[in-house]
Amino acid sequence: MRIWKFGHNVDTDQIIPAEYLITGDAKKLATHAFAKVRPEYSREVKEGDVIVAGENFGCGSSREHAPRALLGAGISCVIAKSFARIFFRSSINIGLHLIEADVFDRIEEGDEIEISFEAGVIKNNTKKEEYKFKPLPEFMRKLLESGGLINYIKKQK
């Protein structure tokens, strides 16, 4: 599992530039993620990798293509100090795990981390540190556990 670290205010144009918005397919979108700002990302990203960022991750456009592009490459979780709201909602609704935690200064690329969503704890095995985070509200956890909004609605039918 690799940590990919990004800065503050990572916008959806960086996550998936507009010229690739001609498909909604997560796997295809994943091949263009961060194409303009970090071209090596889409070549090297692996199933289970984690993104760590600062404030306001996913700001800008409502394009669900952005969380889909991350999910399509197998990103297991995005940890940021805060998220832009449409990105936040869309991620939960499509089943991409997010953690809101102020660990931007603590976790570096190359660190080995373990996440316990139930306990609300990130363990940094490299630095031998633990960071607590507030688990999502129960309703949103239910959405994620169902695999997203669509499966949640199907179960309710």
């Binding site: 456009s61 409502s62 909602r89 997203g148």
Partner: peptide, 26 residues
């Protein structure tokens, strides 16, 4: 609206906001 600038209609006193495609579908 599945477009972030859906908040435009606030100028007419609506509560309008951008959402993702999955939410729009729901």
């Amino acid at each position: 609206g599945a477009d972030s600038h859906t908040c435009s209609y606030g100028a007419l006193g609506a509560f309008s906001t951008g959402v993702g495609s999955t939410e729009a579908a729901a």
